[in-house]
Design a protein around this nucleic acid. Structure first.
Length: 281
DNA sequence: AGCCAGGCACCGC
DNA sequence: GCGGTGCATGGC
C-alpha cells in the first residue's frame, strides 16, 4: 500500500541528515523511518513523496510528523533576507523541515547524544529499542522495534544501561526515567508551558543541560524560539557574527534578538550547513 | 596512537 | 557566575 503527495521545500536527505532525529535508515531509493510506533518507508521523486501507508494514516500521523502544514518558503524568505550567511545556509539546505517528534524519545535520545557522534548515537538508540521496545510487524525479516515507553523502562537498572554501553550517561537516563515515571516531570504539561518554565523543568533532570533541553523543546515540543547551541553552532556563529569567540550566553542572546521566533529554524539551517561544510573548524 | 565527539555535573574561585 | 576537568565508549 502506498500514498503519494505533492511536496515543496522538502528533501528527505536534508530532513534526516540534519541531526534532529536518529531512527532512520538510508536505503537505495529512500529512507526507512521508525517513529510514532510505526515503520514508514518513504521515497521522493522531485516534488512527489511516496509513503508506505494508507491515506488515513498519512492524515492521522505523517502529515503532522513532517510538519507539512507549515509554509517553509515564507520562513526561508525571511531568514535568507537577514544576511548573506543565512542566505547561503538556506539555499544549501533548502529542504529541511523540523519534525514533530515524541518528547520522551527526544529526551532520552539527546541525553545519549552528549559527547557522541551520530552513527554511535543511532546504534545506542537502536540497541535500547531492541531490548525494551515492541517488535513492529513488518514484511521484512530485519526486525524493527518501537522506542520504549517510560513504563517499559521503569524497572531498568543502572547496570542494565551500562551493559548497553551508554557509559557515564547511565545515571542520567535513569534519572529521566524515574522523574517521568514518578510524574515529577510531566512531559504532557510542557506543551502548554512557556519557554522558560519548560526549560527549568527539563533541566531538573540530571544530564539535561542548556543544549539538550533546547533540543527537546525544539524537536519534541515545537518551541521555535529555542536555539540549541552545540559546538558546531558555536563555531558557525563565532565565525559569521562575532569578531572573537563569544560566550554561550551572548550567542544565545544574539540569536533570540536576531532570529526571533524563527531561531529554531535558523539554527537547523546553520547547524547542518556548517557541519556539512566544516565551517569554522 | 591519540584525539575528539550535537555536553554535562561537579569543583574550585 | 565563571572557567577547568573528568567522564565511557567508539570512530577516525
Amino acid at each position: 500500500m502506498s500514498y503519494n503527495i505533492y511536496i515543496e521545500d522538502f528533501s528527505l536527505e536534508h530532513i534526516f541528515e540534519c541531526g534532529q532525529c536518529f531512527r532512520y535508515y538510508k536505503e537505495k531509493n529512500g529512507y526507512i523511518i521508525i517513529a510514532m510506533d510505526k515503520i514508514l518507508r518513504v521515497r521522493q521523486i522531485d516534488n512527489q513523496l511516496i509513503l508506505s501507508c494508507t491515506e488515513e494514516e498519512y492524515f492521522n500521523v505523517w502529515k503532522k510528523y513532517f510538519d507539512l502544514d507549515r509554509k517553509y518558503n515564507e520562513i526561508k524568505k525571511i531568514l535568507a533576507g537577514k544576511d548573506q550567511y543565512l542566505k547561503e545556509a538556506v539555499e544549501d539546505k533548502w529542504g529541511i523541515r523540523l519534525l514533530k517528534q515524541d518528547p520522551w524519545e527526544v529526551l532520552i535520545s539527546f541525553i545519549i547524544s552528549q559527547n557522541k557522534q551520530i552513527p554511535h548515537i543511532k546504534k545506542l538508540i537502536e540497541l535500547l529499542s531492541k531490548k525494551y521496545g515492541d517488535y513492529i510487524e513488518d514484511d521484512e525479516l530485519k526486525g524493527y522495534y518501537t522506542f520504549p515507553k517510560p513504563y517499559q523502562l521503569a524497572h531498568v537498572t543502572e547496570q542494565d544501561l551500562r551493559d548497553l554501553k551508554v557509559g557515564f550517561r547511565a545515571p542520567y537516563i535513569l534519572d529521566a526515567i524515574n522523574k517521568v515515571v514518578n510524574k515529577e516531570v510531566d512531559l504532557e504539561a510542557i506543551y502548554n508551558m512557556n519557554f522558560c518554565q519548560a526549560k527549568d523543568i527539563l533541566m531538573s533532570i540530571k544530564g539535561v543541560g542548556e543544549k539538550v533541553s533546547d533540543c527537546i523543546l525544539l524537536y519534541g515540543y515545537g518551541k521555535y524560539e529555542s536555539f540549541p547551541t552545540d559546538v558546531w553552532v558555536k563555531r558557525v556563529m563565532n565565525y559569521y557574527y562575532f569578531e572573537q569567540e563569544e560566550k554561550l550566553s551572548n550567542i544565545q542572546k544574539f540569536a533570540r534578538d536576531y532570529f526571533g521566533d524563527l531561531a529554531g529554524f535558523a539554527q537547523q539551517y546553520l547547524f547542518y550547513h556548517a557541519r556539512d561544510n566544516k565551517i569554522g573548524k
